[in-house]
Design a protein around this nucleic acid. Sequence first.
DNA 1: TCACAACAATTGAACTCTCAACATAATTGA
DNA 2: TCAATTATGTTGAGAGTTCAATTGTTGTGA
Lengths: 162, 162
Amino acid sequence: MTASVPIAGTRWLDEDEQRAWRAYLEATLLFFDALDRQMQQDSGMPHAYYEILVRLSETDGHSMRMSELAVRTRSSRSRLSHAIDRLEERGWVERADCPTDRRGQLAHLTDHGFAVLAAAAPSHVAVVRKHVIDQLSPEQIRQLTDIGTTIINGLEADDRVG
Amino acid sequence: MTASVPIAGTRWLDEDEQRAWRAYLEATLLFFDALDRQMQQDSGMPHAYYEILVRLSETDGHSMRMSELAVRTRSSRSRLSHAIDRLEERGWVERADCPTDRRGQLAHLTDHGFAVLAAAAPSHVAVVRKHVIDQLSPEQIRQLTDIGTTIINGLEADDRVG
DNA sequence: TCACAACAATTGAACTCTCAACATAATTGA
DNA sequence: TCAATTATGTTGAGAGTTCAATTGTTGTGA
């Protein structure tokens, strides 16, 4: 739908906006498909699972509350819960009761999980570099940081309001 | 995994690159989740289906070959085939034999499908505007276009090679 | 012309994600 | 103190995606 189909009250995208949106959309569709395919082939897990392992590996004790982990990985609680099920089946993560809140659960990265993460990391970085980072100038790296941060802030503000 | 875990031959991301990648990743995870949720609530379809209808609506005759439609929507053939199944069940799209190639199939947007698309468009544009376009300056809109286009070109070149 | 490769599209199973519903525990405030 | 509210996490069903295998068609080179 374009500006040639006017509907009262709708501000359509102008040509520049349309191009930006399509470029962002298509780049993202293509890249995330490529990323997931590569992660699946090289490391036997989807990218989302890799990010869970990364987040756990960055903490002291390689453990984190489920709710905290969901926020950090930008995941829903339900998605995380299912994902941790799969990761537990593979022995990469274990669940433990939270000592300070009986509702809580801790996700803990096992030594095996850490080894799997370490093995997966190089090819993951290689793909991100090849298709994103190394394609862009240092200036564009800064621009992408600003654009991404701005979008995140807007979405988080929106979240807090409704 | 960071530069603090050196592995021979791997070029890790430096701090600026790391920030850019995380900002892009998280903005995209948050935004596409929000977009899909909104599309599902307001229009009863995932964003990917909306894009299929848009592409069909942009052609003369509201028809396109499956393979062509797959390329334009940055979709796999399999994904598209399943998606068209669902869209056909709802009466928004119909399949027809291709007159020039007996292997081929045409996807055709029905009048009902077009009406559904027209009804869905305003709230779709509103979300894209709210969370992306209206958050960015005209300069950032240009930057995002360039960044996205660069990434697309790299991925397409990679595709042609291997 | 014919065998063989490449192309177009589909299929079904396995997997991931979403959504709503649920169970349990902590917190709030009257 | 205790009922109502809020928070944490899980579950199962339904929906979408992926991957490999399959069918049928077209193109190519000997």
